[in-house]
Amino acid sequence: MKALVAVKRVVDYNVKVRAKADGSDVELNNVKMAINPFCEIAVEEAVRLKEAGTVSEVVVVSVGEKSSQEQIRTALALGADRGIHVEVEGRPEPLEIAKLLKGVVDKEQPQLVILGKQSIDGDNNQTGQMLGALANMGQGTFASEIKVDGDSLQVIREVDGGLQTLKLTLPAIVTTDLRLNEPRYASLPNIMKAKKKPLEVTNPAELGVEVKSHVTQLGVAPPPERAAGIKVEDVAQLVDKLKNEAKVIS
């Protein structure tokens, strides 16, 4: 069984994100980039399934600029077998990514597609679901446990009320939640071995997908700084301010 894992290059979760001085975008100069944490969990799950003998090959795919190959190679160092880089300029939105992944799914015919539930930069939580619709596959989102059982897949999902168990027919799509697993660390020797693993580069035209953006980013601004507090004279003044200035009570 072949597993396809999608990974996204994002600003490392440890980095304090800043807006550019001109407010046009997020500052990326000298900023450490990494695999989106939820995608890392997706890679780990696929590698574990391979180690358990359930999956025979783990293919990792990333849609993005050339630098995304770094994240593919990180996934290869974590245990994936080969990589596919779909090279696009700029920052594609979820629907474009889903369409491109659909192209890869058509070509690779995986039985299982694992994605992070959302990326920590866009926070859209859309790509997996859109891919499910485009590829006409069942989807188990926010997975905290998955188990392959013959032709089907059991997915335990984290939902508001607790845990929900689904049974999906393969091929299927899974998006990972935080508690699915704890990703391993790549080892230094495996980083070097990953350099020898195949990494295929393709593009939207080769996949027969037209990339068209529907969203324009107007600006990026940091949250307003909290203003200094003031001392009120008495309770009456406090109530007055809460009522008329802050308007939090009526």
Partner: peptide
């Protein structure tokens, strides 16, 4: 000969994480 900036940075990343 197998090395480049990417593998150097990857080594730094792992050490930093550990």
């Amino acid at each position: 000969e197998d090395h480049n900036r990417e593998s150097f940075n990857a080594a730094l990343d792992i050490a930093e994480k550990i």
